[in-house]
Computed example of a mutant assay.
Amino acid sequence: MGRENRLKIINQISSLRNSTVLSYVTGDRKNISTRIAPDAIKVIYQHLEKISPKEKIDLFIYTRGGDVLTPWRLINLIREYTDHFSVLVPFRAYSAGTLICLGANEIVMGKMGELGPIDPTVANAFNPQNPNNPTAKIPISVEDVSSYLNLAQEKFNLKSEENLITVFSHLANKVHPLALGNVHRNYLLIRSTAKKLLSLHPLGEDEVVVENIINYLTEKLYAHNYMISRQEANKIKLPVKYPNSKLEDLIWRLYEEYERDLELQRPFQPLEYTDEQNQFKVSGGYIESKKALDSFTFIGKINQDKMMEEPEVNIIQQKWIPLIR
């Protein structure tokens, strides 16, 4: 009944807004969370080709974030099919999800709608080694590096050239200089991407507003998990629209259908899904429209041995799989 119920709601939203509705849901279920990533672009293209969009496209989105380059490509793709692009935010649209919202003509946010900061965390081969896992690297927050330097200058008043050289040298001794260079590149990248996204609609014509939005979302929230309500998003002059009571109810009900179908509130326990060969297949996200449905699917196998305290879980594949085309 999941697909049938969702289609009814999608059709109601489409009729109410005279739009084409496309859903992009990356689940945050414990143990099988998914993220915004480039592999969704081709899938969304296939949906857009199939559904023959009307003049308006509404992207229904739920996500904790992901790759910061994907939003720019995704928005440019959607704008090949429409001049009026809106995002429907029933609940979470964090990080890369917020970047997607920056490229929309309007951001329709329900009472529970939340955006988030767009300050990225970066990782490459030169990042510090994780002391608890020698094979892993510690991600570096772009804003943490800036805050360290600001701390030295603003709180401890270390502003002379000699002091600043000492402060930076200490940092470079702890973090590889090439990792710090990567941090700066990502700082420039996120600001450039946000500016380009905002330039896709009339809001981008006001340079002061654009700069204030970018500064607010990258530097002034101080925590990557900060939750931006629709009132706060409105105050920084994002193109936020409040849905009427009927639309509010519809977009929340649609979110609850996805939450129920993807079991977002239940941690994933592989043993509950295994077949006779100890294999499992489970959905972690959806891209859905009237005529098609794709599932981001985890395919794995459990190895059980009497000598093991816990069964070994191996993910064999994780990819978008068409369920309805």
Rank of each mutant, 00 (worst) to 15 (best):
K137H: 07
P139E: 09
S141W: 08
S141R: 08
E143L: 08
E143G: 05
D144G: 09
D144V: 11
S146K: 12
S146Y: 10
S147M: 12
Y148A: 12
L149R: 01
L149V: 13
N150T: 09
L151F: 12
A152S: 13
Q153A: 15
Q153M: 12
Q153K: 15
E154G: 04
K155W: 08
F156V: 09
N157D: 12
L158W: 10
L158V: 02
L158E: 08
K159H: 05
S160Q: 02
E161S: 10
E161H: 07
E161G: 06
E161A: 10
E162V: 08
E162H: 05
N163D: 15
N163A: 14
L164P: 00
L164H: 06
I165G: 04
T166F: 11
V167W: 03
V167G: 00
V167P: 01
F168M: 13
F168D: 10
S169V: 10
H170M: 10
H170K: 14
H170T: 14
L171N: 01
L171Y: 06
L171F: 10
N173V: 02
N173S: 11
N173Q: 11
N173A: 09
K174R: 14
K174M: 15
K174C: 14
V175W: 05
H176V: 07
P177D: 04
L178W: 11
L178N: 09
L180R: 00
N182I: 07
V183L: 03
H184M: 15
R185G: 08
N186I: 06
N186F: 12
Y187Q: 12
L188A: 13
L188C: 12
L188Q: 15
L189C: 05
I190H: 01
I190S: 05
I190Q: 02
R191G: 15
T193K: 01
T193Q: 02
A194F: 05
A194E: 04
K195V: 09
K196S: 06
K196H: 05
K196A: 09
L198P: 04
L198A: 03
H201R: 05
H201K: 04
P202S: 09
P202M: 02
G204E: 02
E205S: 13
D206W: 10
D206F: 10
D206A: 04
E207K: 15
V209C: 01
V209L: 06
V210G: 01
V210H: 00
E211K: 13
E211T: 12
E211F: 06
E211P: 02
E211D: 15
E211C: 04
I213S: 01
I213K: 01
I214T: 00
I214W: 01
N215P: 00
Y216Q: 03
L217P: 00
L217Y: 04
T218D: 02
T218M: 02
T218F: 07
